[in-house]
Design a protein around this nucleic acid. Structure first.
Lengths: 158, 158
DNA sequence: TATTGTTATACTCTATAACTATA
DNA sequence: TATAGTTATAGAGTATAACAATA
């Protein structure tokens, strides 16, 4: 034991191995630790495409939902409208998406991906898929399915 | 179909329901969505104790590992040393922890919880436990165990 | 009056470089 | 020379208020 290795007037126990046991009782803690790893891996992959987690999600939703409005994106991804503006601006500047005025409501914009945006999105989706398969290779299909089911249950609690 | 509801010169399909289907193929996306809910709930509980996720984790590790150094805390929780300083300062100011000079290495501090810190920690742990049970009540023991196992597998990949 | 997108701004969280005191 | 803790600062990420244009 390291505890008795130094002979001071007062005992000053030094910690050899840090224990996080009290936090391990919480499923939320395990999920956070795991998500940190996933996020690091994801950001690594996305860096290749000059995208971040948020801008990638935005691009995907625009590709998947052609004609989506910024306000819809905002609520779907829980991003505040003002923060979405700079993300959209960047994607537009890179010519991955276009803003079209909605003719029936001139306040709104319809967002659509360009061909370049479509292609980048597809490439990114494939790359992430590859990385997830690698990251989750120790987790079999049944477990993955259970995890997804559990996550959906939690998500529905909000 | 909403798509044909407006008759403009160019078709401007409006999205009625936003689909995030391409993201749902990723376990990481499900985990993120679920974690958002968990984090919101956790922060809500911790607000009662004037703690945040990080300061709570720090307090728990100090209670669990009496005599831990800031550098050990830093690497255990992946917090940069400079950022840890302000967290420790705040906990010390609230007299939840104390900093003691390590007699054998006067560069370092040993961190220990006070009685008040101990008690606050215990109360917070119990409160979080209660909230987690509520949040995860739709998930049975077998599923929870599977989730934890999967999260540990992912965490080990880093 | 309410909504869409925007601007400006502030606040939190995290990251980096450089310092001090000790080893 | 290297390490523990600190300071200052910069950069993300996120949140809020107020505005113009439009409904």
């Amino acid at each position: 034991m390291k505890q008795s290795s130094s002979a001071q007037s007062r005992s000053q126990p030094e910690i050899a191995e840090v224990s996080d046991a009290p936090l391990r009782q919480f499923m939320g803690y395990h999920i956070k630790r795991a998500f940190n790893v996933i996020q690091a891996d994801l950001n690594d992959v996305l860096k290749t495409f000059e995208l971040r987690m948020v801008s990638f999600s935005v691009l995907v939703l625009i590709v998947e939902n052609p004609g989506i409005r910024q306000s819809q994106l905002s609520s779907a991804l829980a991003i505040e409208r003002p923060n979405l503006v700079v993300i959209i601006d960047a994607l537009e500047k890179r010519e991955l998406i276009v803003r079209d005025r909605l003719l029936t409501d001139r306040r709104a914009y319809l967002l659509q991906a360009t061909m370049a945006g479509d292609q980048l999105c597809e490439k990114a989706l494939r790359a992430i898929n590859t990385h997830e398969n690698k990251l989750f290779e120790g987790i079999d299909a049944a477990m993955r399915s259970t995890v997804v089911q559990a996550m959906r249950t939690i998500e529905a609690q909000s």
